[in-house]
Design a binder for these strands. Sequence first.
DNA 1: TTGTAGGCGTTATCAC
DNA 2: GTGATAACGCCTACAA
Lengths: 371, 371
Amino acid sequence: MQGSKIDERDKKREFSFCQKSIAEGACPVNKSLTIHDIAKMAGVSSATVSRVLSNSTYPVSAANREKIVRIAKETNYVPNLLGKQLKTNTNMTLAAIIPSITNPFYSSVVLGIEEIARENRYQVLLCNSLQDARLEDEYVKSIFEKQVKGLIISSISADTKLLKRYIAKGLHVVALDQKLEEDGILQIEFDYRKGGYLAAAHLIASGHRRIAYVTSPLDRPSRRSICRGYEDALREHGLAPTIQVAESEEIYDGVYEFDNGKRLTRRLLELSDRPTAILACNDMTAVGVMNELMAAGVQVPREMSVMGFDDIAFSRMTVPPLTTVKQPDYEMGRLACQFLTDRLSGKPMPQMEIMLQPKLVVRESVAAPLV
Amino acid sequence: MQGSKIDERDKKREFSFCQKSIAEGACPVNKSLTIHDIAKMAGVSSATVSRVLSNSTYPVSAANREKIVRIAKETNYVPNLLGKQLKTNTNMTLAAIIPSITNPFYSSVVLGIEEIARENRYQVLLCNSLQDARLEDEYVKSIFEKQVKGLIISSISADTKLLKRYIAKGLHVVALDQKLEEDGILQIEFDYRKGGYLAAAHLIASGHRRIAYVTSPLDRPSRRSICRGYEDALREHGLAPTIQVAESEEIYDGVYEFDNGKRLTRRLLELSDRPTAILACNDMTAVGVMNELMAAGVQVPREMSVMGFDDIAFSRMTVPPLTTVKQPDYEMGRLACQFLTDRLSGKPMPQMEIMLQPKLVVRESVAAPLV
DNA sequence: TTGTAGGCGTTATCAC
DNA sequence: GTGATAACGCCTACAA
């Protein structure tokens, strides 16, 4: 009188083997084996198999345990996580939404995220929003449909309506780099203003009085903050800001920032009151600046000092090596993911905002101005 | 006499609301609504709701259809894909296993993959194997547990035992960049040998007779192939190869290749019979080569020609711009993903291998040798 | 220590 | 057109 239902199920299993396989090409219909199959082979119930194979602490006799483990190994049993997830409402995948993985800053962030995720047995879904708010929303929606419970986002839009709704439904969010004003979102920010200030102050301390700032469009708050820091430093010393903003729309072709740097530098060189130092909104732009200066026969740093922002790996490789402000990309990713997984595992977390601090990285692209 | 079971289920639903929420911190127990909830609100069965909300072609009266859609929208219904996936044994996520996302070559590949995935409504799980075969196996295992049916892999190990097993169970694999000898794996290769040949031939055609090759450890087949191409070209012209291989272990810190280039160049400069041209195994290494040459006061390309391999975005930004061999990274990612999604959607696909061709990119780091 | 049975949210197969 | 119902693979009270 044992297991009428289960027996039927198993009977069916035996016969449901490959009904339509060969006919339609490379499409094998291999029902993979389940705990029920193993149960049958071991002569126990599927409950016992589940208890053993899910590393439950539930007591199972040593004999059965050994037998089940052996059979699972012999048959190359692979558990179907979907079943588990559906039942337990857990999910070992996280998502990261970033502007573009080809931006070296974000690829370091993602490497850090993935590393911590791996340590905690999570995997990460990568989403490139390409600065498109609509795309971003679509991603958020589909990760939620997949029951992903943890999201790290460097958002392009400040609109948190959608996020808010999903947070209420159990999504945990860490916002990177871009502040999202919303309760329940853990903020990991970077003090861009201070970074901009630090950079400008370094140039001022080196003796410069005419310091220009070249930047990508000021649409992202982070960029506005760097600019504000630059302005604050200059004003504090009674100096007048010179700001060149790229007007072209952002493209992700890997040389956009570089070209910006070149273009804006050309403009600066035409100025009657030419600056003696140029601060760029990021390192890639700074590389463009240096490149254009070199093309114009202006020596760096003798005739013109240049500073970047970010400290990507490339900054060490330029000639001269670029003086810049370090924004801890890799560490930021690790931190964000650590907080996220902590939260997902139920550790109590106070509501807080983390503000990472900039650090001046002095290399060789800055010198005192010529007298 | 209608729906005794479902009624009970729904009754339970109403009362199972938030039993333990507040007590244990930030852990809301919000059962999200299901098709059953919507069915109840609309006064229809869950079957009808499913038919409407899953875009089935199954006929449903316009009135019901409209009502269900409206309610779903009003209540912000989000389908639980886990249920669907479990039932239908489909899965809209792919996985990409690559050595490291901080390598600009792979970040472009991944951008291409993700783009095509998005177009086909897939999402992609990113896995950095960090050249660790053990890690790679772990990834393969866990994506399979998640029922992922499509994998794009740039494998470090040539051991396909595990992959083979999963392919037999329905996993579809596209191998990028690194040949995996296994039936059923779609190969997208790049003709590294020809690339190496092309580069060396270009240097020879420019008049060079003493051409050195600097390279990361020759553990990956791709690297050995480039080297072979280089050797073939030289031998064809009766020239003797000079190969410098880095002996240090690979690290993913973003400057490893650069440092290699510098270190190996230093060795070359000490040679009694100094080369007049240096070919590097990739662009990052070539940047290191140029950097070291500049530090040593050797002018590029007047006194020494330099060539890279890959054509990453940065090669356009060096001074002088780097002559190199283009390996189509982004396009490779797109192609791989296109094939994968085609295969997953059941399109008939012949077994084949695709060999992408290298292309010479002439910039300014190569000149005729001094006489 | 073990097994039974029900349900996680969805789809698919039947009847009606 | 519609609804009941049985899966999908797993976990977990509850009973034994």
